[in-house]
Write a protein that binds this DNA or RNA. Structure first.
Lengths: 339, 339
DNA sequence: TTGAAAGCGCTACCAG
DNA sequence: CTGGTAGCGCTTTCAA
């Protein structure tokens, strides 16, 4: 059913119907009520593409999925969609086809230039991230999940990675640990940098020396956690504790411990960052895993809301949200053995 | 830049430009070449919403995300987007807001009626799945990932769950196991039913009696794996082997074994279904995990391709793909202790 | 408060 | 092989 048809059916003009359905103030409440009811009864729904053409709005937010296909994405998407569904906003997922920064930038460019979206979200930013000037140049609104030092002012939402890892590391030091392994995320990413800073600051404040052999970078996979943890644990003076970048990393570290007949929570401690998943919970691990915790789903939801505000005209430069991170102590962090 | 403007700029009619860019045969090769080159040079791109309105195509495939937000979704999406990006097809993700079958059906209805998509994909079907008559009634093309017994003919792509679990179970029986725990997916889902059938058929063919205490159903989470495995292992005559519905389930089972001081690969065996993830690999588990393996990413890609064909006019009823599942034996399946 | 009609930018029919 | 032009279904002036 089309607008014209529907309008004729209920004895009104297309204009009035359109206004009633879009909630314009100049339509009388009675008319609005009646139109809404009739629309439901007769099953009338505006054609979304016609609306979009007429209004010039795309009605969607763009999300570019990188090659890695990281496991946190489902939770993030879930949070976004929950917010966006009310506003008839879609989320449009595009892949980066080849690997590398350039391919990624091109993917953003394609989406932005095709006019398929009203705003985009930049994931996993780096300092001076090239996607920021790109979208600013194209006049495409966006929000950065994370931060990008050295870039022009822009909207961002980030969690306090530095603070979280600072507290996690300090906690381990409080327990007497002095050799603390750090298995961080991909090198170059802002969140990895911030976590490294938090880690080093904790060491420095307590007079511990930084040992580069105890720091590693890589994807958030159990393999990375396993390999680096094992390598570090096989060194002469091995770490007695680990800070892990993700739940998957922690899984790998637990595995490395078992492979070397070490017991987590007795022979060594582990604390990891947890984005909160329905299918893998820190509480259930054995021993239960101490974590720095922050919900990906919540972040996705809030980002969607902010993006809607930016589209509606809120100045993007004023949007900076830094979310605190919970520190949840469980069984996996214990005093250093014999300490 | 708009079509009219661009056409004037290069001295052609909008008609010819449109045809050249869409690859219509009646345009001379020379003209086509020139138009494409000029479009790049001048940065002309058709407005996607105008194209969609004019053609009546939505240019997107709909995917409804259920409440659970299952972890396999990222891989599936990745596979889909990789295929769709070439054809300028988007994928539109919508959430189910509340829980329950009805809410889910309503989500499908909303997407289909709004005309936002050219086709939809039905995930996690059940027998007589209500989404199938719904979409058929609305004339919305779709493809089922999985199968739905009792429904009218429709397009589907499934993996051979029954065969996979039959072989997995038979393998365990070959190793001498007679008490085999089965921690399956959510009750009522077709894939769970098929796996149950494969499991029971293997037992029957080898003259083993089916014991309902050894079978459990639940979400694909480590918690479900842990809880059910522990419960079964604490029974008097406990299972000596497990068939697990997912990698997360297997994680939970491994954990349950450790909690009870049992060693997987010695005191008990485990085999799980693996959808193949970059971040958690069966090879890396300790002991390495035997699996029935089938790539979610590949399935997503193939489904996208098939959906494109259906949209292009291929009769949906003829599309039935049953994918074989690999059986990969690793260290976690061993002869029954003392067998 | 309601309505008529001119677009929104493109495609595709009908001519040439 | 190329071009003129009438829609696609809605929104939004402008007028009443």
């Amino acid at each position: 059913m089309k607008l014209k048809e529907f309008a004729r059916e209920i004895g009104l003009s297309p204009t009035t119907v359109s206004r009633a359905l879009s909630g314009y103030p100049e339509v009388s409440a009675a008319t609005r009520q009646r139109v809404s009811a009739e629309a439901v009864r007769l099953g009338y729904r505006p054609n979304i593409n016609a609306v979009r053409l007429a209004t010039g709005r795309a009605g969607a937010i763009g999300l570019v999925m990188n090659q890695a296909g990281e496991f946190q994405l489902t939770e993030f998407l879930r949070g976004m969609t929950e917010q966006l569904v009310r506003d008839e906003m879609d989320i449009l997922v595009t892949p980066v086809v080849e690997d590398g920064t350039e391919a990624e930038v091109n993917a953003y460019r394609r989406v932005a230039e095709a006019g398929k979206v009203d705003a985009m979200i930049i994931l996993a930013p780096q300092p001076n991230d090239p996607r920021i000037p790109l979208l600013q140049g194209l006049g495409m609104p966006f929000l950065v999940h994370g931060r990008s030092e050295g870039s022009a002012p822009h909207a961002w939402l980030d969690i306090d990675n530095e603070g979280a890892i600072f507290r996690a590391t300090s906690h381990l030091i409080d327990l007497g640990h002095t050799r603390i392994g750090m298995i961080n995320g991909r090198k170059g990413m802002t969140f990895s940098l911030h976590r490294d800073i938090g880690y080093r600051r904790a060491l420095e404040e307590r007079g511990l020396t930084f040992d580069p052999r105890f720091v590693a970078h890589g994807n958030f996979t159990d393999e990375v956690g396993f390999t680096f943890a094992r390598d570090m644990l096989e060194q002469g003076l091995r770490p007695t504790a680990f800070v892990a970048g993700s739940m998957m990393t922690a899984l790998g570290i637990y595995r490395a411990a078992r492979a070397l007949d070490l017991v987590v929570g007795r022979d060594m401690s582990v604390i990891a960052h947890d984005d909160v998943f329905p299918y893998l919970t820190a509480d259930n691990m054995v021993p239960s895993l101490s974590t720095t915790r922050s919900s990906m789903r919540a972040a996705g939801g809030r980002i969607a809301t902010l993006l809607l505000q930016i589209i509606a005209g809120r100045p993007a430069e004023e949007i900076h949200e830094l979310w605190p991170v919970e520190l949840i102590l469980r069984e996996s962090t214990q005093p250093v053995p014999g300490g």
